[in-house]
Design a protein around this nucleic acid. Sequence first.
DNA 1: ATGAAAGCGCTAACAA
DNA 2: TTGTTAGCGCTTTCAT
Lengths: 344, 344
Amino acid sequence: MSKEKEVTIYDLASELNISVATVSRALKDDPVVSKKTKKKIFDLAEKMGYRTNVFARNLRKGETRTIGFMVHELNSNFITSVLSGVEKVATEAGYDIIIAHSSESYIKEAANARNLFDKRVDGLLASLSFDTKDTKHFDPFITKGVPVIFFDRVEKIKDTTMVVIDNYKCGYEATKHLIDQGCKKILHVTSNLNRNVYADRYRGYRDALSDNGIGLDEKLVIVNDLSEKAGIASANAMMKLKPLPDGAFITNDFVAAAFIKTLKERGIAVPDDVAVVGFNNDAIGHLIEPSLSTVNYPGNEMGEIAARTLISHLKGETSIHQINTVIINAGLIIRKSSLKTKTG
Amino acid sequence: MSKEKEVTIYDLASELNISVATVSRALKDDPVVSKKTKKKIFDLAEKMGYRTNVFARNLRKGETRTIGFMVHELNSNFITSVLSGVEKVATEAGYDIIIAHSSESYIKEAANARNLFDKRVDGLLASLSFDTKDTKHFDPFITKGVPVIFFDRVEKIKDTTMVVIDNYKCGYEATKHLIDQGCKKILHVTSNLNRNVYADRYRGYRDALSDNGIGLDEKLVIVNDLSEKAGIASANAMMKLKPLPDGAFITNDFVAAAFIKTLKERGIAVPDDVAVVGFNNDAIGHLIEPSLSTVNYPGNEMGEIAARTLISHLKGETSIHQINTVIINAGLIIRKSSLKTKTG
DNA sequence: ATGAAAGCGCTAACAA
DNA sequence: TTGTTAGCGCTTTCAT
């Protein structure tokens, strides 16, 4: 609206009767400029309300100081803690974040990738959506040498780093814990098994069973989305099984909460009839009853580490080409929903 | 890294032996360019992998197609639904979002404002932090004619639009509902009363009481932050009051959940000893026991409307100078935590 | 330690 | 309908 002219380095230069080159150098604290001139320039800049024009700089330098953040949704606790971690690190380092979410759609994810590529982000942090199988849409980044780091839901691509937890181990631990509690028939409620996170947890579940002499029963594996509805449906589906399972490993706390609530409404005792372990360590876990045993998945840390790794690469301090995978600590938190008080 | 030259409109122009002006016009679908030339240009652009250079355009046009999103935190369900709504609308309209969070600090909020101003966002969406009293840091935006829209936690500034719910009415309704349930001594757990949202709800609470012949007792008003700890502390504080309150209006579902849990652990029955109404309609509300009566606060919608209003202003379709305040529908949702089964 | 000047890629006023 | 050209504000090479 208002037509106030922006102050440029030319204004500063002519005001002080020096060249723009000197002003430009002074402004980025180039040691070659004398202390005196620098001071004059800084003072005047302050006084005239000078603000560097980011576009001119970017145009000239060909870097954007922006990183892309691609996720499936923004509505989960986990993802927003990741974002919060990323935002913190990025801001400190002077990077902006452009966010794009795909609503779990491959088409949208590809469109977002294209958009972020066009926006020339300096780097990309991404967690894949459900139905993303091929990763062609990341090729332009790889080809052009724009660093890509996957987190949580990942896919191994050449020249790409992943930040993950050991989902296999966590799945194994959760299942083993239920077995230790005396469970013999353990339900597994999870999501799209094409995605590494769910596939790995499933493998952990399966191996824990077989290592303990329990056969795998495909009917006990329920694949669904991560909604409240899914939790209710899974509980209802379970009620139809004879004999009733005595344990459940559910790969999402929110789903687990709905699951438990439904069971309780239908007269099933948790943990005594069915012991339950969730996944993520959402705040909801200790507010429901019984408090939810779960796997701690530190989103904030994951975000910080992913961002730090990316930015450190961008600054040339370390290279992500040396780093294949970063594994973040995660592990079982035992609360009441899985602790049987009487032995089956 | 890789030194592949980017394709520019000059490349396209010289390849086709036409001028850059024509290419530029064609690319933005200017009707003045003939269909034929347009087609040639689009095809070649596709073939050569042309991507428009956003910085050159921004530098030239002086607009950034970016909007700033300033909030206190990213860790609440409510805020992330707002963000999700904003992101949706903004993406559709071709705008990017830069996010900045202040961790409830005025200092950081001011720094963020400065940063977003320097980044030359085309517009700003903001929700204030706790200890923000003056709003000087928004002056540069106002002066320069950059539109600012406040949502949720707002402050009236000239030339600024607010998107809010009727917090007074909601506070009144929630309290009245408790009174209708027979409550005579109603606790109010809330947060910083300098912020409009809490102040207005508090006024609603107060007026509902006095309209129904109940005196205001300052000891029944607990001001705290919005943490789980706050919920526990409030419950414990309440336990010391003699006689015990028989109702509680808590301005945050998360806090209410922790509050209820603590009461139950200490042998107080909800709703029969103490009826509880929360605020926000977080998903947690129907997963806890008893399910939580609350005030529906539709974050997604608020985000969409705020973003739509801003963008429509930026496009010159409508002006925010005509709009002072947008009030979003919100209202009581009655579940079990507030429904007394026996009459006191 | 400082200056002159080219050019990053695009848009738009003006001309044809 | 198309072309020419002057900048937008900055960084950087080459000179001084």
